[in-house]
Computed example of a mutant assay.
Amino acid sequence: MKGLNVAVVDCDYPQHSIIKQKKRDMEVVRITAVYQNRLVEQAGRLKKKAYPVIGSTPANCMAD
């Protein structure tokens, strides 16, 4: 909403639960036309792509 770029670093090693949730969400979007349309509308409205989720460990998160 404020035009900032966002990334998520998932340091929940070894589970990486945020990465797993995003993969499940993207699979639902891939197979569901309604969600595909909503994603396109949101990207157009916000002028932003979906934020990346990066897997890391607590020791490496700042470098990643």
Rank of each mutant, 00 (worst) to 15 (best):
S17Q: 02
V6C: 13
D10Y: 01
H16I: 02
K22M: 15
V53F: 05
T32V: 11
K20M: 07
G55L: 13
K48T: 03
Y51V: 06
V40P: 09
H16C: 01
L4H: 09
R24G: 06
P52H: 01
G3F: 06
R38E: 09
Q15K: 04
Y13L: 00
I19Y: 12
S56V: 07
N37T: 04
Q21K: 13
M62I: 14
D25E: 08
Q42T: 04
A50D: 12
G44D: 10
K2T: 13
C61Y: 12
D25G: 13
A43T: 02
P58S: 07
V53Q: 02
G44H: 06
P58G: 00
G3Y: 04
A33F: 11
V29Y: 02
R38V: 04
V9M: 08
D64L: 04
A50W: 05
A7F: 08
L4P: 08
D12M: 03
V8R: 01
D12P: 10
K48M: 11
P58E: 05
A59P: 00
V28P: 05
I31D: 14
Y51W: 10
K49G: 10
A43R: 07
L46H: 08
C61N: 07
A33D: 12
A50E: 08
M26R: 00
N60I: 00
D25A: 10
S17E: 01
A63M: 09
P58V: 05
R30Q: 12
V40Q: 15
P14M: 03
G3T: 04
Q42S: 14
M1I: 06
C61F: 10
M26P: 09
Y35C: 04
N60R: 13
D12I: 00
A7T: 14
R38S: 00
T57H: 11
Y35M: 14
K22F: 07
P14C: 10
K48W: 01
V53K: 01
